[in-house]
Design a binder for these strands. Structure first.
Lengths: 142, 142
DNA sequence: AACACATTGCAACAAAGTTGCAAAAAACAA
DNA sequence: TTGTTTTTTGCAACTTTGTTGCAATGTGTT
């Protein structure tokens, strides 16, 4: 299901079969307003009025399960979350885009334009999902 | 610097300019005996006699800094460690191999044979480092 | 052996994440 | 709208994970 800006937060939540609540609206809005990926801590801080830490955990988990956002593991052992641009469905994320981590501004973005070339695995290995994280200097910083 | 099995643990530690201690020998031996990547928790458990949690943290950190092992971030927000097969040097890891996570046995391995194809980034982005994690079913499980 | 230096383990702490449960809010039905 | 059911929230208590300072111990060197 595609997440496009023409939908309101309420409409989006409905489309993803989620009850419309305050925390979900605020947190989803955060993602819509934002280019780069967000960490749990960012969300706790930026979500305007403060929600309980537990609520943020549970909201993110729900969003991932329903396919609104996907998670990106990072080198420093934390998880970032970003909106799923398209064809992510409940339980199965198609992250066929790459993630770019800027070493200067430390922001992480999804590069939707870039395709991941086919990678041939040795005999016997079956590929289900591929995650590519490239770090370097982003467009804004160079 | 290449890590080959013909060297003893002691020799390896010396070569990487590390003092030879009990915990370092035991932990390095663990990695040498093992195909797949290890999590901090695995190491605490498997390291025969128990070392303090702090010692394990510090030993792993030292090994990463000196280039004996490299770390692999995982989707469930934990870090795995694996031996560096070759050309990793102090402070700079050349992880030009991919990591494969089996969804069945949950083991993570480095596929050294597989090369990462060139990925063209949009104008303005400068690539420094690339991490590829593929999940699916491994050879042993299929 | 004696020295300098590096490493360890303990304790205390900080941060991150989880669970159960009662209260509050949302959805649903009449 | 009102009442009923179901979902979500926030709190408290807890577990797990990771960090820091420091005294004691171990390692390398002469």
């Amino acid at each position: 299901m595609a997440i496009a800006k023409q939908y309101t937060v309420n409409e989006l939540l409905r489309r993803f079969q989620l009850n419309v609540t305050d925390s979900r609206k605020k947190i989803l809005q955060l993602f819509l307003n934002q280019q780069e990926a967000l960490a749990h801590a960012d969300i706790e801080k930026k979500a305007g009025e403060k929600f309980d830490r537990v609520t943020v955990y549970r909201t993110l988990q729900t969003f991932v399960e329903k396919g609104l956002i996907h998670s990106i593991p990072t080198a420093d052992n934390s998880i970032l979350y970003a909106l799923c641009k398209d064809d992510c469905t409940e339980g199965h994320h198609q992250d066929h885009h790459i993630h770019f981590v800027c070493e200067q501004c430390e922001k992480t973005a999804c590069l939707d334009q870039v395709n991941i070339p086919e990678i041939k695995l040795p005999l016997g290995f079956k590929k289900e999902k591929i995650d590519v994280v490239i770090s370097g200097i982003c467009k804004a910083c160079s």
